[in-house]
Simulated assay, not measured.
Amino acid sequence: MNGIRRYAKQFSLVMAILMAFATTFSVSAHAGMVGTGELIQQQQVNLDRQQLLDMLEQQEVKEKLTELGVSEDQVAERIQNLTPAELADFEQQLAEAPTGEGVVGIIVLFLLVFIITDMLCATNLFSFINCIR
């Protein structure tokens, strides 16, 4: 019986130390309400991003990007890295573009986004564009 008590004391000491460490280094979780507007906005951003990626699948767009020396992977990566505000501006420009411009308008918009991200030092695709910082 004494042997069990001796092990129980050692065990409880180890458990008390572990409990102290666990409570000292634990991180509190914070939960908050997610509004419907925020949820809809996030879904819209995902939808806009997917629409742009779908445009990359058009053969005319692929040919024009190849002609300009830009790979599809680079374009897709940049689309994924766009902030929601940049994506909304891009979608607005795309919606306002005349329908007759077609693929050339899309390519020009992509290039404008690339130039802006190069100027903001977010990327370095074009060597002739310097950071504004």
Rank of each mutant, 00 (worst) to 15 (best):
I4R: 12
R6L: 03
Y7P: 00
A8G: 07
A8E: 08
K9V: 09
K9M: 05
L13S: 11
L13F: 07
L13A: 15
A16E: 13
I17G: 07
L18A: 10
M19E: 11
F21H: 04
T23E: 04
T23H: 10
T23W: 03
S26I: 06
S26V: 12
S28N: 15
S28G: 07
S28W: 03
A29Q: 11
A31K: 11
A31W: 10
A31D: 01
G32F: 13
V34A: 15
E38V: 02
L39H: 09
Q44R: 14
L47D: 07
R49M: 10
R49N: 03
Q51W: 02
L52R: 01
L53S: 11
Q59L: 02
V61Q: 00
K62C: 01
E63T: 04
K64Y: 05
K64W: 09
K64C: 00
T66Q: 12
T66K: 04
L68D: 08
V70C: 01
S71Y: 03
E72T: 03
E72L: 12
A76H: 04
A76W: 02
E77N: 15
T83H: 01
A85Y: 09
A88H: 12
Q92F: 13
L94F: 06
A95H: 14
A95L: 10
A97N: 04
P98E: 15
V104P: 00
V104Q: 06
G105P: 04
V108E: 11
F110I: 15
L111T: 04
L112Q: 15
F114N: 00
D118P: 10
M119G: 03
N124A: 04
F126C: 02
S127H: 07
S127A: 14
I129L: 07
N130I: 07
C131K: 02
C131Q: 05
I132P: 00
R133Y: 13
R133T: 13
